[in-house]
């Protein structure tokens, strides 16, 4: 059996202590050990972005991240975006612009949009497209997704 390692980290504002197999991904830990199923598994290979989370404010594919690497870090998942004040402005914009269809890609899409908004702020349309390139959506055709992000950060031509 693969040995385990004890880690502790902040997940959506709460301290978590877990013992994880060394080779487990952060995605598997979140979904199967911690019951946080908002973050989705689709390709499992870094191609689709459904598993995107923010680690110390930086977006990563949690299917490629080792759970052990979460030790000491601050992790934010889609569940942590909503606060006592309600939905995050990015979530609200996605709802208002009708950017969500089946919704499977959305936790990752919204976390990546949040990362772009936090780190870049106002963007050109091309920067926005490039920024969301690692998030695949089979439903929306992206147009309304771009509209939603633009409503939050402002997008220039």
């Amino acid at each position: 059996m693969t040995a385990k390692v004890d880690i502790s980290f902040t997940l959506n504002g709460h301290l978590k202590k877990v013992s994880v197999p060394i080779d487990m991904s952060a995605l598997t830990m979140l979904r199967d050990m911690l019951g946080m199923t908002g973050t989705k598994l689709a390709c499992g290979e870094g191609e689709c972005g459904a598993c995107t989370i923010l680690v110390d404010g930086v977006s990563l594919n949690s299917c490629l991240m080792y759970a052990a690497e979460c030790d000491g870090r601050t992790v934010l998942t889609i569940e942590g975006l909503r606060t006592a004040a309600g939905l995050d402005p990015m979530q609200k914009a996605f709802v208002e612009k009708g950017a969500i269809q089946c919704g499977y890609c959305m936790p990752g899409m919204i976390m990546q949009a949040k990362y772009l908004a936090d780190t870049k702020g106002k963007m050109t349309h091309e920067e926005l497209q490039r920024g969301l390139e690692g998030n695949v959506c089979r439903c929306t055709g992206y147009k309304k997704v771009f509209d939603a992000v633009a409503a939050v950060v402002g997008v220039t031509e």
Binding site: G46, G49, T52, V58, S59, L60, N61, L64, M65, Q112, Y115, L116, R130, G131, L132, E133, G134, N135
Partner: peptide, 9 residues
């Protein structure tokens, strides 16, 4: 190079 998420990691 790859996507934003892969470049970050």
């Amino acid at each position: 190079f790859a996507s934003s998420q892969i470049r970050n990691a």
